[in-house]
């Protein structure tokens, strides 16, 4: 019985800690956001175009046709490109999060009900996370199972989110 009681107390302690974490997040809500209109004006998905070339098989075909080619060289090149791709993906996720945070701010501070925007944002998040997970899984298994995920839809998702954000609609920081 005492073990069961300890379990109940542990459940309670964990729940309270989780609650404190949630409350902390709510307390900080909005304070870390930085909807800098200049960043949105300057942002372009063009910076991700080179990323799409990283999985191009044509380069390896060309490499194989060269004198002195050894499969080890191609393996090393693939590994290096995967590392670069992971860096691109981290950057892309950061940009997506920034655009997404801005879109949520527009929604929260909108003066009229925007259920369609809320629905669209939720859909975009789900699609983006699913695409990102698929690509990361492909990269993880790439050394044993070479898959070539299509990176284009990921960049398109970012562009579609960017198009929804008009810098003029961003809420204005309140004067302290």
């Amino acid at each position: 019985m005492s073990l069961a009681l300890v379990a109940v107390l542990v459940v309670f302690a964990v729940s309270v800690l989780a609650l404190i974490w949630v409350v902390r997040r709510v307390s900080l809500a909005g304070r870390k956001q930085d909807p800098n209109p200049d960043w949105f004006k300057a942002f372009s998905v063009r910076r991700y175009r080179p990323m799409e070339r990283l999985l191009n098989e044509g380069d390896y075909v060309f490499l194989e046709s060269q004198p002195g080619f050894h499969p080890k060289i191609a393996r090393r090149l693939r590994a290096e490109r995967r590392t670069i791709l992971r860096k691109y993906l981290r950057m892309l996720r950061r940009d997506f999060d920034r655009l997404y945070a801005a879109a949520k701010l527009i929604l929260v501070y909108s003066e009229s009900d925007r259920p369609e925007l809320a629905r669209e944002l939720l859909k975009q998040r789900i699609v983006f996370v699913a695409m990102m997970t698929r690509i990361e899984l492909s990269l993880a298994v790439a050394p044993v199972l070479p898959l070539r995920p299509d990176l284009r839809p990921l960049v398109d998702a970012l562009e579609s989110l960017r198009l929804q954000i008009q810098p003029a609609n961003l809420p204005v920081p309140s004067v302290a």
Partner: peptide, 13 residues
């Protein structure tokens, strides 16, 4: 708790 998470996700001050 779920509603607090919802408000923190947006985030609503």
């Amino acid at each position: 708790i779920i509603m607090m998470l919802f408000l923190a996700w947006y985030p609503v001050p």
